[in-house]
Nucleic acid binder design. Structure first.
Length: 568
RNA sequence: CGGAGUGUAGCGCAGCCUGGUAGCGCGUUUGGUUCGGGACCAAAAGGUCAAGGGUUCAAUUCCCUUCACUCCGACCA
């Protein structure tokens, strides 16, 4: 490839709307261009890198025994009505009508389509297990697209689906996808770690997310250095030690005018926030409930939702709070509440605490939960923070940020039941298939590579996904012997399966050096008269400080050696 | 959807407060001098100042509305 023929412009400055390094670099290096919010065009170099990620995904999926198919992105709404997600996905889906006024959706994912497909195609246990996958464009009407390809309205995803006869077989399918994911991310040069995760909208019982550690990540990851426990913050659990204390004095109601928030109440009563009980009123599937957490902690809505087993969980509005507590917002408390009360484990056995009095401008002192309130259930319902105790080994937990690049789910029969995906057993009995689903955000993975691997000068591509492995910077274009040597080298490298781009532009050397570093080609060969006079080309890895002068005849071997070194 | 902010040349920005029809840097084109880490000189092309309405003799500037984009929360690969 000749640079002069390539559709690419590099930018000296970062676009104003790019926030994180990987996004800035993708734009500056001319890998992607924005069409509109959350919509990007892959330029030739960006697409080359994307295709390399895809190739790795294909190889590992095929090796794991998954079969590639391609399902339509445009789907009838009817399918989504059958699974119930036509309503539960809400405005997250792009919806449209065809000319006959039939409701259609642009597929945000493919559980419905694939389950319907397998329900029709598979009728015997002999056809199972079966895992299918595709690499395809997904559409999601994200509330807030951001960070370039990280959260886009249209993106490339690899999604796989497994169908099995038994739970044990399904576990095996899950494990084989899990293992494939570990290999895929490793081959992309990514440090991605699996963490326990919440299952969210997709549903199912258990899941792991593959997280790339990055300060710009949108997810919190709780980890234990001692035992290796790792979980998404929204799912992470912790160990609490039982609370003991002297019995509370009798309840005492005090005036707390205009003190509504924990901070205000704590300041007014000169108490530390952890002595307070935060009482949150929620509406779960239409019915009000209360959730209690220590004043210095935050409620984890995911956990509460799972505990209650409700479909929707939203903070109650002012009117509901008034009705339930008889007080304005800010003065709710557990004492005397007539609705179900869920309390965090930290509050079990809590004595002498402070809470709202369910009367405007009043709080109560000396609350003993067991004595003064009726708690429906104690459970772990707070957001785990750094410093909490590991649920497995009790050592302190850490909190880091991560980018979710992959997610593997055990679905069970959630979809196979709605779509009657059944098969006949050896005994001739009809049984429901057990499913799993497995996603990789391919375009997101590409950007995650950049986020994790760059420096002040630009991208540092791993060889496995670099748009080109080798960039030859041709200086001194008027030197005929040099040009001939470059042509020769290009042929030789290509013949050996090494992709190479030649910067043949009529530019000053400095421009070529800067662009080469910005785009981040793993191996740079400078072809200039000076070095040639000294006996060869200058060869240098992207992060090497010094270039080596290598005789033309030895460049291929030298480059191969560099490639082999990284492959380790 | 809630809170904050920004829309001026391909990109990054100034001008607006204090109305008089637009400028800088990068990039692009042409010519020349240069040529190993984003060169220099000269000339040039390129703008319905987001859109619509209002105030005014006059609006990029003041006011209103709409739209788009970005940032902070819920969603997710």
């Amino acid at each position: 490839m000749r640079w002069s023929q390539l559709l690419i412009t590099t930018l000296r400055e970062s676009p104003q709307d790019a926030e994180i390094d990987s996004h800035k670099l993708m734009i500056r290096a001319g890998l992607i261009r924005k069409l509109a919010g959350g919509l990007y065009t892959f330029m030739p170099l960006g697409l080359r890198a994307l295709k390399k990620v895809e190739a790795i995904v294909h190889e590992e999926m095929d090796a794991a025994g998954a079969q590639e198919i391609l399902m339509p992105a445009l789907q009838p709404a009817e399918l989504w009505e059958r699974s119930g997600r036509y309503t539960t996905m809400g405005p997250g889906m792009f919806r449209l009508k065809d000319r006959k006024e039939n409701n259609m959706v642009m597929g945000p994912t493919h559980e419905e389509v694939v389950t319907d497909l397998l329900a029709r195609e598979v009728s015997s246990y002999r056809q199972l297990p079966c895992t299918v996958y595709q690499v395809q464009t997904k559409f999601r009407d994200e509330i807030r697209p951001r960070f370039g390809l990280m959260r886009a309205k249209e993106f490339i995803m690899k999604d796989a689906y497994s169908f099995d006869t038994t739970l044990e077989a399904a576990d095996k399918s899950y494990q084989s996808m899990y293992d494939a994911y570990v290999r895929i991310f490793k081959r992309c040069g990514l440090d991605a770690r699996p963490v326990e995760a919440d299952t969210g909208d997709i549903g199912g019982k258990w899941s792991h997310e593959f997280m790339v550690l990055a300060d710009s990540g949108e997810d919190g990851i709780i980890g234990c250095d001692a035992c290796g426990y790792a979980a998404n913050q929204e799912r992470a659990e912790r160990k609490v030690s039982p609370v003991t204390g002297a019995p509370s004095p009798a309840l005492e109601t005090v005036d707390t005018p205009n003190a509504r928030t924990i901070e205000e109440v704590a300041a007014f009563l000169k108490a530390s926030p952890d002595r307070l009980i935060k009482t949150l009123i929620y509406v779960a599937d239409g019915a009000p409930i209360a959730a209690l957490v220590p004043g210095d902690r935050e409620l984890n809505e995911h956990k509460l939702k799972r505990l209650i087993g409700c479909k929707s969980l939203v903070l109650a509005d002012d009117e509901t709070i008034m009705k339930v507590t008889g007080a304005q917002v800010g003065f709710a408390g557990p004492v005397g509440l007539k609705i179900p009360v869920y309390a965090d484990n930290d509050l079990q056995g809590a004595v002498d605490r402070i809470s709202g009095a369910n009367a405007t401008d009043k709080h109560v002192l000396h609350v003993d939960l067991a004595r003064d309130a009726s708690v429906t259930q104690y459970e772990d319902i707070v957001i785990v923070a750094a410093g909490d105790s590991c649920p497995r080994c009790g050592k302190p937990l850490t909190l880091k940020r991560g980018i979710e690049v992959g997610h593997v789910f055990k679905l069970g029969t959630k979809y196979s039941e709605s779509f009657e995906a059944t098969y006949l057993t050896e005994q001739g009995q009809s049984q429901t298939m057990i499913m799993g689903c497995y996603g990789i955000g391919v375009s997101r993975t590409l950007q995650a590579v950049i986020e994790q691997s760059h420096d002040a000068n630009g991208i540092i591509w791993p060889i496995s996904v670099a748009p080109f492995t080798v960039a030859i910077l041709q200086l001194d274009a008027q030197d005929a012997a040099l040009c001939e040597a470059v042509n020769q080298l290009e042929k030789e490298l290509k013949a050996n399966g090494i992709d190479v781009i030649i910067d043949d532009r009529d530019e000053r050397p400095g421009v070529k050096f800067k662009d080469s570093d910005l785009i981040g080609f793993p191996i740079r060969i400078v072809a200039g008269s000076k070095a040639l006079a000294k006996g060869g080309f200058e060869v240098k890895g992207r992060t090497d400080a010094e270039a080596q002068i290598v005789p033309p005849a030895e460049v291929l071997a030298y480059v191969r050696n560099l490639i082999a070194k990284e492959a380790l």
